[in-house]
Design a protein around this nucleic acid. Structure first.
Length: 889
RNA sequence: GCCGGUGUGGCGAAAUGGCAGACGCACAGGACUUAAAAUCCUGGGACCAUAAAAAGUCGUGUGGGUUCGAGUCCCACCACCGGCACCA
């Protein structure tokens, strides 16, 4: 009853609309009442901004589950808190609405995904609004909206039209790329540029998921299975669009230092980027002009290399394999390529491999060592070849044992450790000129030596691969790319001009891929072929594309002329003292290496190209913990333990729901749902209510309500409820003020530290005390409502309105209360007394008592006497205002 | 295997190195009620003791250490959760 009333009021006033610099603020808006109508006018000192963001949801058919509102409630509380503190708060919501389920539904039923998506968005909107979140709905966006994905496509064009200049360490327009001298024909120049673009086409083997009918990025493949659905993924060579995220590996790693994310999350990103320092070394093939380059992090073990291993896909294999071994090598290559990713990772603990017949020369000692191929060496990492040092590498050791290859010790471990299979740092032995050096030293010396002789050089390798950016789907952003043929008949690609944006997907009858394996878009033959004979790209972008920049669009959601306007970007993304960007971003860990890495990458490109003003998008990021079912298991349909927020809301209301989500425990922790717990906070809200209202008038209201014709009429009856007569306009007693100010202090500090659960418990303590007050000072209760407002806004606004009898001051914009430390000072304090470290008694002394007084009081205690009586006092420790400890012998 | 996180009552959890278990749930007893619901009051870590209590002992995953004093700091280990994993 109360909740819809306030939700309608907020909606009607657009109460939580955030204003950009230069915008006109209507005089009636509560923001204007707080800050003045020209608060945002240019040249005027406008309030500091606070940008607080939730990870926007994919609007699924199942609707919201209780996990979504956990983060949303936390951000809403902080948004309301900062609003009360006088910040101009940007708190938006939108929809990550491209995605597979709507497309699969379309394949089954023929219903356009847009219809499904819109229905789901409507349902999500209803659910989210029913929770009373203070979003600025005027900035709502959906990635599937052409006005939005127009700019997603535009950003893709920026990537397409840029290259990464290692000299400046920045992305730059492709026109700044200089052609080499031998690059003269139009075809050569085009090929040269296409090879440098941040968005490029590659023919490499990719992760193909037959079940989903699309390719997937490395990040979307887990243990050889698709992240979505858990279907098998196989390697398959295909022509695909890639984004050159590897060019940013170093920056993505280094800039983790300037943002405030949890250690575990930063570590996940570091692991995924996987930087490792080492050296590349060239090995001459005996009796051949070919050289094989290997990457190693342990050049100091070069003297212990007893064989080499190439990946089965290595380019030089054909050239170096001896005729006698050719057949075996070919058979092994077929065997390796036939393995699925699943088999290669899960079942391949047993090493396999074949001798190529070739020998390589170890550059440090001229030894001839055999060259093998084995699938434990990956083509896609380093140089696709290794020098094997079985004595000091676990994998090489296993392989050597299986194939009886020699093992030579070159590192001496610390005393007491077995040298075979020792992989940590030690001292070099049997290693010529580096013998006797510690590993770190040995690495340095041999790298310098290799470099000097031209045999190798220091290098850095990354695990991070380029981002596979195309999908064979219908429900995604089409690429603004067309294909043409040159004079020789070869296909080449070309960007559509900005004026052609947005490129809309065609209307289809059938959303399945074509029978010959083309993406669904290829079915629209009249869409695909342009009048001039060129052909459209039929792949679409992955779901991650839209979420890579949505936080920027919120700052300037209606801008028709740019993806974001510079003033809006500079205002909302500005530094708030520490590092620039979104001030607080809350979402689940599942996006640690997907969305969060991709978004950082795009942002850095946009930054390099001068389109945004900050190097990082999200300054502070917090992951909310998973909410488990009542049985302590992960919520899932199959377990039947899913809690639907609608049910909880119907039973207890939004305020109780919000309060419980926050009261369960620290935001970041994993915690089980417990409906009984909701009852607890519901009872608390009941006590808050009874603290304010007159019970007799409530009975009158209840009787009237049962006879009310409809909801609107019933809402009017709320006025029948009168304030409790105990509430009077009198100054609070010192004890009452102390209770109140202790609560203000605790709630304020806990909100600053995002400790919502303890803030709520502090309010419970206040209410438990205040409810016993015979006379309730109105000012104290008013202040309490301000503390309660961010957590339980509906009931707080309702009671606030009653206290102000018709005046229209919105509680949401009332200035946050401050506490007076003077009121919290204790005159008499209790101090625990320990004897030999064991707690024995509590003494009461004046707060400013000196040590001698405290000591005397402690010794005077009867209980303490029992323990020190007759014993010699060795030492007395007194911590003023804290405790006393008497050590006796 | 590597990295990160977490271990505290029957349960969710609190505790700047200083009275462990705030606050809440569940539970028990009582008040109000014809009765129930709602509400209000009281109790509550374990052990030992007792008619009941007081007093006492033990207690924050395990084992050590630092300290007058450790849930908190240090070392070693165990368990669970999450991530990565043939990345040379």
């Amino acid at each position: 009853m109360i909740e819809p009333k306030w939700q309608q009021t907020w909606d009607a006033q657009a109460a939580f609309r955030a204003f950009n610099p230069g915008e006109t603020v209507p005089a009636a808006h509560p923001f204007a009442q707080r800050h003045g109508t020209d608060a945002m006018a240019p040249g005027r000192q406008f309030p500091p901004k606070y940008y607080i963001l939730d990870m926007f949801p994919y609007p699924s058919g199942a609707g919201l589950h209780v996990g979504h509102p956990e983060g949303y409630t936390a951000t809403d509380i902080l948004a309301r808190y900062h609003r009360a503190r006088g910040f101009n708060v940007l708190h938006p919501m939108g929809w990550d609405s491209f995605g597979l389920p709507a497309e699969q539904y379309a394949v089954k039923t023929g219903q356009h995904p847009r219809v499904t998506t819109e229905a789901n968005i409507a349902n999500f909107t209803r659910q989210i609004k029913s929770l009373g979140f203070s979003y600025d709905w005027s900035r709502e966006l959906a990635t599937t909206d052409p006005d939005y994905f127009k700019w997603t496509q535009w950003i893709f064009l920026q990537l397409y039209n840029s290259w990464f200049n290692p000299a400046t360490n920045k992305a730059q327009p492709i026109e700044t790329l200089k052609f080499p001298a031998d690059c003269v024909t139009a075809e050569q120049q085009r090929a040269f540029r296409d090879g440098k673009r941040l968005a490029y086409v590659s023919e490499a083997p990719v992760n193909w998921c037959p079940e989903l009918g699309t390719v997937l990025a490395n990040e979307e493949v887990i243990d050889g299975k698709s992240e979505v659905g858990g279907f098998p993924v196989v390697r398959k060579p295909m022509r695909q669009w890639m984004l050159r995220i590897t060019a940013y590996a170093e920056k993505l790693l280094a800039d983790l230092e300037i943002i405030d994310w949890s250690d575990s999350l930063k570590e996940m990103q570091r692991n995924w980027i996987g930087r490792s320092e080492g050296a590349e070394v060239d090995f001459q093939i005996a009796g051949s002009s070919e050289k094989i380059r290997v990457f190693t992090t342990r050049p100091d073990t070069l003297f212990g290399a007893t064989y080499m291993v190439l990946s089965p896909e290595h380019k030089l294999l054909a050239a170096i394999t001896t005729p006698e071994q050719a057949e075996a090598v070919k058979a092994y290559q077929a065997f390796a390529s036939g393995k699925s990713d699943l088999e290669r990772t899960e079942l391949a603990k047993d090493k396999t491999g074949v001798f190529t017949g070739a020998y390589a020369i170890n550059p440090v000692n001229g030894e001839k060592i055999p060259v093998w191929i084995a699938d434990y060496v990956l083509a896609s990492y380093g140089t696709g070849a290794i020098m094997a040092v079985p004595a000091h590498d676990t994998r090489d050791f296993e392989f050597a044992k299986k194939f009886n290859l020699p093992v030579i010790q070159v590192v001496e471990p610390p005393a007491g450790k077995e040298w075979q299979g020792f992989t940590d740092d030690g001292t070099a032995v049997n290693s010529g000129f580096i013998t006797g050096l510690a590993t770190v030293e040995a690495k340095r010396k041999i790298s310098a030596w290799l470099e000097e002789k031209g045999l190798g050089k220091k290098t850095v390798n990354f695990k991070l691969r380029d981002w596979l950016f195309s999908r064979q789907r219908y429900w995604g952003e089409p690429f603004p790319i067309i294909w043409k043929r040159d004079a020789a008949g070869a296909l080449y690609h070309e960007a559509l001009p900005e004026s052609a944006l947005p490129v809309l997907p065609p209307t289809l009858e059938d959303y399945k891929p074509t029978t010959d394996g083309q993406p669904p878009l290829a079915r629209a033959t009249d869409w695909v072929t342009l009048p001039d004979g060129s052909i459209r790209e039929t792949n679409t972008m992955p779901q991650w594309a839209g979420s890579c920049w949505y936080y920027l669009r919120y700052t300037d959601a209606k801008n028709a002329g740019a993806f974001v306007g510079t003033p809006a970007d500079q205002y909302w993304m500005a530094s708030n003292g520490k590092s620039a960007g979104v001030d607080l971003y809350v979402g689940g860990t599942e996006h640690a290496v997907l969305h969060l890495l991709y978004a950082r990458f795009w942002h850095k490109v946009l930054f390099d190209l001068g389109h945004v003003s900050t190097p990082e998008p999200f300054y502070k990021l917090v992951n909310q913990g998973l909410i488990l079912g009542e049985d302590g298991q992960k919520m899932s349909k199959s377990r039947g333990n899913v809690v639907n927020p609608d049910d909880v809301l119907g039973e207890y209301g939004a305020d109780a729901f919000r309060l419980y989500e926050m009261f369960m425990g620290p935001l970041e922790m994993v915690k089980p749902w417990n409906t009984k717990g909701v009852e607890g906070v519901y009872r608390f809200l009941g006590r808050v209510w009874r603290l304010f209202v007159d019970e007799a008038s409530e009975t009158v209201y209840e009787q009237a309500e049962t006879t009310a014709a409809d909801a609107t009429q019933a809402q009017g009856l709320l006025d029948l409820i009168k304030l409790s007569p105990a509430i009077q306009d009198v100054p609070g007693t010192p004890a009452q003020l102390k209770t109140l100010h202790a609560c203000i202090k605790k709630v304020t500090e806990d909100l600053d530290g995002m400790r919502f659960n303890t803030a709520i418990s502090a309010m419970m303590v206040f209410v438990n005390e205040a409810i016993a007050w015979e006379v309730k000072p109105v000012a104290a209760l008013r202040t309490f409502l301000q503390l309660l407002q961010p957590f339980a806004p509906h009931v707080a606004e309702e009671l606030w309105a009653k206290l102000h009898a018709g005046s229209s001051v919105a509680l949401a914009y009332a200035p946050w209360p401050t506490y007076d430390p003077a009121l919290l000072v204790e005159t008499e304090i209790e101090i625990p007394v320990q004897v030999n470290g064991k707690f024995r008694d509590v003494i009461k002394v004046a707060a400013d008592a000196d040590n001698a007084t405290i000591e005397a009081a402690a010794k005077a205690s009867e209980k303490v006497q029992q323990f020190i009586g007759g014993k010699a006092i060795k030492k007395i420790i007194i911590v003023p205002k804290r405790m006393v400890n008497i050590a006796v012998g």
